[in-house]
Structure formats: C-alpha cells, structure tokens
Amino acid sequence: MSGNVLVVEDNEQNLYLVRFLLEGAGWHVVAAPDGPRALEEARSGRFELVLLDIQLPGMDGHAVARELRRIPALDGVPIVAVTSYAMLGDRERCLEAGCTGYVEKPINPDTFLDEVVSYVRPEVRP
C-alpha cells in the first residue's frame, strides 16, 4: 500500500480541485505542470497512478503518454487521460498513445474518485 499519484495538469485551479479530491481519499499527490517535468518526476519517483491532462502547453498529452510508457518504473501503472468533450476522437488517440483510460472534463466530484480508482489494482489503492 502506498498510493502515490502523479497529476500532470497546467491549470492551477484544476490541479487544486484534483489534489483536493485525491488527498481527501488518502492519495499522495505529486504535481507536474507540463510534459518534461512529468517525465522527470516519473523517472525519479514511484507511482501507482498517473492522471494526465491532454491539453498541455508545449508537448501535448499524447506525446507525454508515449514517453511515459517508455519508463520501466511505470510498467503496469495506469495512465488516465483527462479529456474534455471538445476533443472527440482524442479519446481513441489517448488509448493509442498508451493511456489506460480516460475521464471527462469537467470533473464531476460525485463520480471522479470512483472512476479514477477503478483503473488501479485494489491492493495498491490507499
């Protein structure tokens, strides 16, 4: 049991919201505002879950997902894309890029945790 989650999100308010919900459920949140810093964190830390915003400045979410999938430490770790309705077709591209699943923006606080945690194996949930 550890419950480390890497949250890749460039918007401060959205990050606060996600962090608030995850920490409320006992997760330890490590945040990265863009792709390169997310890769850096992923290489140096140990995570049970990655939440990845797809609309990131600079390196886009799909590219970040592909790079994350090359990191051995993330083998078998779910990467959940956070996509908005506007990016139809992006969902398929998310899965192709190596994401395990996706949740839709705007986040619904009633269902968000259940959705995200469903991708994580029960024994590593906090």
């Binding site: 918007n11 923006k105 705007p106 986040i107 606080p109 009633d110």
Partner: peptide, 26 residues
C-alpha cells in the same frame, strides 16, 4: 475553435468542479 473550446472550458471545469465539491460538503 480549438483554442476557444479549451480556453472557455478550463475555467468552467474548476467552477463546476469546486461547486460540486462544496455541495458535497467536502
């Protein structure tokens, strides 16, 4: 359109999200 959709939604995401959080009593 792509930019607008992102720019308009981003603040809405947090408005809707935080409203939901507060309504839940969290």
């Amino acid at each position: 359109l792509a930019t607008m959709s992102h720019e308009l939604r981003t603040p809405l995401n947090s408005i809707i999200g935080f409203t939901g959080v507060l309504l839940k009593g969290l």
